[in-house]
Design a protein around this nucleic acid. Structure first.
Ligand SMILES: [Mn+2]
Ligand SMILES: [Mn+2]
Ligand SMILES: [Zn+2]
Ligand SMILES: [Zn+2]
Lengths: 135, 135
DNA sequence: TCTAAATTTGTAATCATTACAATTTTATAA
DNA sequence: TTATAAAATTGTAATGATTACAAATTTAGA
């Protein structure tokens, strides 16, 4: 993945902060929060500001190279994978993982029609790891 | 719908505030926010406190007679209809409507299995009304 | 009626996010 | 290269939703 080219081709000037934040998001697929992103990167970029993380993620979202995952109503997570997929959160361990899904199979029998442009599917339950624990 | 009985049979003592808030939520299907609920009910119950609205909704959720609708990451909406259904938000007019959906049709081909206990499906786009406007 | 428990209320605290102005960095032209 | 303007980053203050908490009110039972 050529991050600089990816940013540039999406009209985003590739500053150090932007490259690092996008790289982090792309490599860490567990859908981190702003705080996690900031904490994990501030060692690398000591001058990093949390405001920059917020600004940068907003910029990414406006340019469609990042999306939010709001599977909980009290935390916003971020995702750099833009291919359509669902999300599963384990309510035991808290992990949020990607789920391949065929969204086109979603046929809703609606009387009043509307045009769907975005679909978000959020699943919750227990993950394989937690199911196999004996406690 | 017998609201008092519904609350009682779900282990919730039917105080005036609880009855009115649940009744409001059940009758107004547009998935109101705390502020909307409070504003619309304070005329009816002049002593109503916003804290009571928060407390009561939390109580409803804990007892599974209400759920949250977090189709936007910056506002929490509430819903008293507990039958499984999806939600559609029109990005023109902001309306959030219910969508009948066959959740069982959702087959995800996952390598790592997990046990799904709750499913939330959020759709966004343009509603019928807004599509038919000439502007 | 009296008393304790439950509920409601108002205010203060918390915490995530945004606004904004100052500083720093980058790009451009002389 | 140097000067200047634009863009990006930063730190701090403001905002706003939610929660904590203690006081007041209401309800239920003896
Ligand atoms: Mn994802
Ligand atoms: Mn609904
Ligand atoms: Zn788990
Ligand atoms: Zn509309």
């Amino acid at each position: 993945m050529d991050f600089i080219n990816h940013l540039t081709s999406n009209n985003i000037k590739p500053s150090l902060q932007r490259i690092k934040i996008f790289e982090y998001l792309y490599d860490n697929r567990e859908h981190p929060t702003v705080d996690t992103i900031y904490s994990d990167l501030v060692g690398d970029i000591p001058t990093l500001s949390k405001t920059t993380v917020y600004n940068t993620l907003k910029l990414f979202i406006d340019n469609n190279i990042t999306s939010t995952v709001t599977i909980e109503d009290n935390e916003v997570r971020y995702d750099a994978i833009m291919e359509e997929h669902a999300h599963f959160k384990c309510e035991k361990c808290g992990n949020v993982q990607d789920v391949e899904i065929d969204v086109s199979a979603l046929k809703f029998k609606e009387k009043n029609s509307f045009k769907v442009e975005k679909t978000n599917i959020y699943l919750k339950g227990k993950c394989n790891k937690c199911l196999n624990k004996i406690n």
